[in-house]
Amino acid sequence: MKILITSGGTTEPIDAVRGITNHATGRLGQLLAQLFLDKGHQVTLVTSPGSYRPEKHKRLKLIEVSTVNSLQNVLEHLVKDHQVFIHSMAVSDYSPVYMTDLEDVMASKDLSQLLKRHNHQGKISSSSDYQVLFLKKTPKLISLVKKWNPDIRLIGFKLLVNVPKEQLLQVARTSLHKNQADLIVANDLYQIKQDQHQAYLVSAEGYQTLTSKPAIAQAIYERVISNDKNHPPRCQR
């Protein structure tokens, strides 16, 4: 099979030296890519600079992206040419529009006009005590996947922070339905540590509880290679 995997995290530039990013390492994406390669599949890994990635392999195609826009441009073409898409990359929810002094914002009579401005300097001055950064929402790329390829098998990820288990599962079920996904891997940041990663694999049949990155990768692999949807791995409800 041809497997498409995203990993790591995007960075949205504020200026030439600053950006908004996240703490995603790409470790789980690395494990997934290596597992599918070891089992004889072709893997395209779309990842960010500095993220974990497998060793070079004849069946591995590696593509680096940095921003949401560059990721979207790459995925729109790749999704059409793969059978399975595992979207584990942490994608920025917002992108910078304009950064300016607080005094400029307070003096403005129409804040909407500031949204039409852009920073052209290579490095925004740090002389002011306070700066205001305007952000705009980025596209939810997972919502576009089935439009690009209705037949692709889609595994998405959902990360929340310190929420009740049932809330995490409900958000994952909503994403599963909304994005027409086969699986959603639901995580809580408070349950992710260096040697432990509790997650729930949520499908239409129920969910599986897993407690480490290798276990998550193995469970996703088993779901992907299973052609018999009437006999999925045992799930809780």
Rank of each mutant, 00 (worst) to 15 (best):
residue 1 M to E: 10
residue 3 I to E: 00
residue 5 I to H: 00
residue 9 G to K: 04
residue 9 G to S: 05
residue 10 T to N: 09
residue 12 E to L: 11
residue 14 I to A: 00
residue 33 A to P: 07
residue 37 L to Y: 13
residue 38 D to Q: 14
residue 40 G to Q: 06
residue 41 H to L: 04
residue 45 L to R: 02
residue 45 L to N: 00
residue 45 L to W: 02
residue 55 E to F: 08
residue 58 K to N: 15
residue 59 R to W: 12
residue 59 R to I: 10
residue 60 L to P: 06
residue 61 K to Q: 14
residue 62 L to P: 02
residue 65 V to A: 11
residue 67 T to H: 13
residue 67 T to W: 14
residue 71 L to D: 00
residue 71 L to E: 01
residue 82 H to E: 02
residue 83 Q to F: 12
residue 83 Q to V: 07
residue 84 V to A: 00
residue 85 F to A: 00
residue 93 D to M: 11
residue 94 Y to F: 15
residue 94 Y to N: 03
residue 95 S to F: 09
residue 96 P to S: 04
residue 98 Y to D: 03
residue 100 T to S: 13
residue 104 D to M: 06
residue 106 M to C: 10
residue 108 S to N: 13
residue 109 K to C: 03
residue 109 K to Y: 07
residue 110 D to G: 10
residue 111 L to N: 08
residue 116 K to T: 09
residue 117 R to P: 03
residue 119 N to Q: 06
residue 122 G to P: 14
residue 124 I to Q: 09
residue 125 S to L: 14
residue 126 S to Q: 12
residue 126 S to L: 14
residue 127 S to D: 12
residue 127 S to P: 01
residue 127 S to A: 13
residue 131 Q to R: 08
residue 136 K to G: 07
residue 137 K to A: 15
residue 138 T to S: 13
residue 138 T to K: 12
residue 138 T to H: 10
residue 139 P to C: 08
residue 140 K to T: 05
residue 141 L to N: 05
residue 141 L to R: 04
residue 146 K to V: 11
residue 152 I to S: 03
residue 153 R to I: 01
residue 153 R to L: 06
residue 157 F to Y: 15
residue 158 K to F: 11
residue 161 V to M: 09
residue 166 E to G: 04
residue 171 V to P: 01
residue 173 R to A: 14
residue 178 K to H: 08
residue 181 A to H: 05
residue 182 D to Y: 07
residue 185 V to K: 09
residue 186 A to Y: 08
residue 189 L to T: 13
residue 190 Y to I: 08
residue 190 Y to R: 13
residue 197 H to I: 05
residue 198 Q to D: 11
residue 199 A to M: 05
residue 200 Y to H: 11
residue 200 Y to C: 05
residue 215 A to C: 00
residue 216 I to G: 01
residue 216 I to C: 03
residue 218 Q to W: 07
residue 221 Y to M: 10
residue 223 R to M: 08
residue 223 R to H: 15
residue 223 R to V: 04
residue 224 V to Y: 07
residue 225 I to A: 02
residue 225 I to K: 02
residue 226 S to E: 00
residue 228 D to H: 13
residue 229 K to H: 13
residue 230 N to Q: 14
residue 231 H to F: 13
residue 231 H to S: 14
residue 231 H to Q: 14
residue 232 P to R: 08
residue 233 P to Q: 03
residue 234 R to F: 12
residue 235 C to M: 15
residue 236 Q to G: 10
